[in-house]
Write a protein that binds this DNA or RNA. Structure first.
Ligand code: MN
Ligand code: MN
Ligand code: MN
Ligand code: MN
Lengths: 222, 222
DNA sequence: ATAATTTTTTAGGTGAGGCTAAAATAATCT
DNA sequence: AGATTATTTTAGCCTCACCTAAAAAATTAT
């Protein structure tokens, strides 16, 4: 069986790969909160298991098999997040931490049961796509709110789930997936972005606005 | 933090202690499916953590703190079993295995949420009592069906959850907690027990009948 | 009461997944 | 280009939870 450590490495490599293509030892070490030397050791193991390709000093890339396993874990994680929110009434800033532990221990039957109970969903509470069983993922990369210009309108599609504080803040302000937004102002020198949602308007620091992804030409709106 | 291994040892010691009082190294080794030497090692660790008292060559007994932790894990396990059965439609022969892994990773919040969702239950699907948060457990030891004499009537209260095969067999026959039973015959020389439930009667081997616990003077019946 | 047997502990090892410190390699600056 | 700095790998250790084989203690049989 594949250990939890291996699962976490694969998941993390997958996510880093989305941004940067090839993943460096130091990036992986930082994301895993582990010493760089430990990463080198694990990367060798992953390579010997044919889960990654490793070119020493150059970084690491998931193999087909590694990507499949990564997606499997991510599927568990996101289904769990949604289940915790929908079925157990978790607030959206707490689901991540709980899912982080559960994702490694649920059976395929459990996965299947919650998938059906949720009506075969495709998005987690933060708007991230839930990989399908066959390894398909909807790509759909949207613009960061921080990159939009005044006048732009659209619908929030994703909110980064990495920081619980941020989620709590945005949640109370209604800045959640499927909320419509309009950019009113964007102050220069990395200044705040002013956005209007249904009724109220909000002034968000540029860092915060980076966490929000907006679909500017909404095809459908919920 | 307390490791999963420690949690499993405490849980197992608790269960063995229910039958035998003090728990021997070999009994623990067999239950944990581990070499006796490994048990000695872990027992020393548990003793140093003040979770058990160990008199070398004499066996081991849970301390107050150890018992509290054991009950905590058992509470998780039984709440999970019930939740899997009630909320996710698991069959009662599969809940044990899944709960065995989940019990170690759920948070107190998760525990609380499923406890409330289930209506603050006191019994798991096999009829075993769910320890309360404060460490209270309903004792209620009932007679084994194999020990009853012909003519005895009562209500099934517990079915041993150790063997999935047994559970499947009993389940299809309606021999589940809260089913009324009457002992019709008991063949000598460890022969089978014939029991009548609502309509049908069943002939059960003595070994099988041992797995079923019956309350002979039912106070209330569901 | 001794001897034989069983149970438990000790001694020494293994593999996973971490760590720090030092060496090797790559990238950047002057 | 050569020196400096940053990144990555190697070397050597550690802890946890397991293992087998041997020694020690307790129990049971003669
Ligand atoms: Mn799965
Ligand atoms: Mn998420
Ligand atoms: Mn608990
Ligand atoms: Mn049970």
């Amino acid at each position: 069986m594949i250990s939890e450590a291996v699962q976490d490495y694969l998941k993390t490599i997958y996510k880093l790969q989305e941004d940067t293509g090839v993943v460096s030892t130091s990036a992986l070490a930082e994301a895993m909160e582990v010493a760089a030397a430990s990463v080198t050791g694990m990367v060798k193991k992953l390579a010997s298991l044919k889960l990654v390709r490793h070119h020493p000093y150059q970084g690491v890339v998931l193999s087909k098999a590694g990507e499949k396993m990564a997606l499997e874990v991510i599927r568990h994680h996101r289904l769990l997040e949604l289940y915790l929110a929908e079925a157990l009434g978790y607030s959206w800033d707490k689901v991540h931490e709980e899912a982080e532990r559960l994702e490694h221990v649920i059976s395929e039957e459990f996965e299947e049961k919650i998938f059906e109970a949720l009506g075969r969903p495709t998005r987690d509470p933060h708007g991230d796509p839930i990989p399908a069983k066959d390894g398909t993922v909807v790509a759909a990369e949207h613009d960061r709110l921080s990159d939009l210009e005044p006048g732009a309108t659209g619908v929030i599609r994703q909110v980064s789930d990495s920081d619980a504080e941020v989620l709590r803040y945005l949640g109370t302000r209604g800045l959640v997936p499927n909320a419509p937004v309009e950019v009113l102002e964007k102050a220069p020198f990395n200044g705040p972005v002013t956005v209007k949602t249904r009724e109220t308007s909000h002034v968000l620091g540029r860092d915060l606005a980076q966490h929000i992804r907006v679909e500017t030409r909404p095809e459908d709106e919920t």
